[in-house]
């Protein structure tokens, strides 16, 4: 694994490149993390996915969006347009590093949504894997508000001052700016337009990802996901869940193209 910074000097992005076991492979994957509070719990699983893909002869680039992880900036400075630009840069970086000709974007939660949005804007990748994608931005905001309310009401020792003096709206420590809130509220992948791109949707049975999968593209396959919601905050910092079944299936789908 080769960790490095890339992108503009005033907007550095952290990347971790996993070279394919076969260096001549022309297949590549860019992994897009969930954002905000869902980033940390999912980190070990995406790291393991990168390792498995690399062993299966796929070049992989994991990277942190601006304002996330080791990348520059604060989360509150993030926005959907810039994050899609970050994703485009990551794809270019992987293509330049490993002579990759066939790129698959694999995104988890809002990372999947970003990947879909970036592909809608232009031909960024040859294939798309959306793992538990967020299709309805307004619903996602409502979900985050409920999460924050529950946290401040039940988990904080004495929440009043911090909530009153903190940012206008934050979710488990991640401030959502007014601009980002408006952008999120406008995200709705359900009515299409569908992408003409081989797409895998990994979703829990009955979830919005499964129910609306046909809105996401003309060529969608569904992989039912019945393992843990690894993106939800774990109370313990000493446990991590790696959903082995989903990682195996995703790897097989990417390699089997």
């Amino acid at each position: 694994m080769h960790p490095f910074y890339f992108g503009r000097a005033d907007r550095p992005l952290f990347g971790a490149y996993h070279a394919a076991a076969n260096p001549h492979s022309t297949k590549g994957v860019v992994l897009v993390h969930p954002f905000g509070h869902e980033y940390f719990p999912a980190y070990p699983a995406l790291q393991q996915l990168a390792v498995r893909l690399a062993r299966a002869d796929v070049h992989v680039l994991r990277f942190d969006l601006y304002g996330a992880g080791d990348s520059g900036g604060d989360f509150g400075e993030g926005g959907l347009e810039q994050w899609q630009d970050d994703l485009r840069l990551a794809v270019e970086e992987l293509q330049a590093m490993a002579q990759v000709r066939e790129v698959t974007l694999v995104g988890l939660r809002f990372g999947a949504t970003l990947a879909w949005l970036a592909c809608r804007e232009g031909r960024l990748a040859q294939r798309l894997a959306l793992w538990a994608p967020v299709l309805d931005g307004a619903g996602y905001l409502a979900e985050m508000r409920a999460l924050e309310d529950n946290y401040t009401s039940h988990a904080l020792p004495a929440p009043r001052e911090a909530v009153a003096r903190g940012p206008r709206f934050e979710v488990l420590g991640y401030p959502i700016s007014e601009a980002l809130e408006a952008e999120l509220a406008a995200v709705d992948l359900r009515p299409g337009p569908a992408l003409d791109l081989p797409t895998l949707v990994v979703a829990r049975p009955g979830s919005e990802g499964e129910v609306h999968r046909y809105d996401l593209g003309f060529r969608v396959e569904l992989l039912p996901y019945e393992e843990a919601c690894i993106w939800l905050k774990n109370e313990s910092m000493n446990e991590a869940v790696v959903p082995s079944g989903a990682l195996t299936a995703l790897t097989e789908w990417v390699v089997g193209s």
Binding site: P157, E161, A162, V163, G166, P167
Partner: peptide, 14 residues
């Protein structure tokens, strides 16, 4: 930091 939780979750506490 009596008002903060174990991981200083809220940005105000951080």
């Amino acid at each position: 930091f009596a008002e903060a939780d174990h991981t200083f979750t809220l940005s105000y506490h951080r």
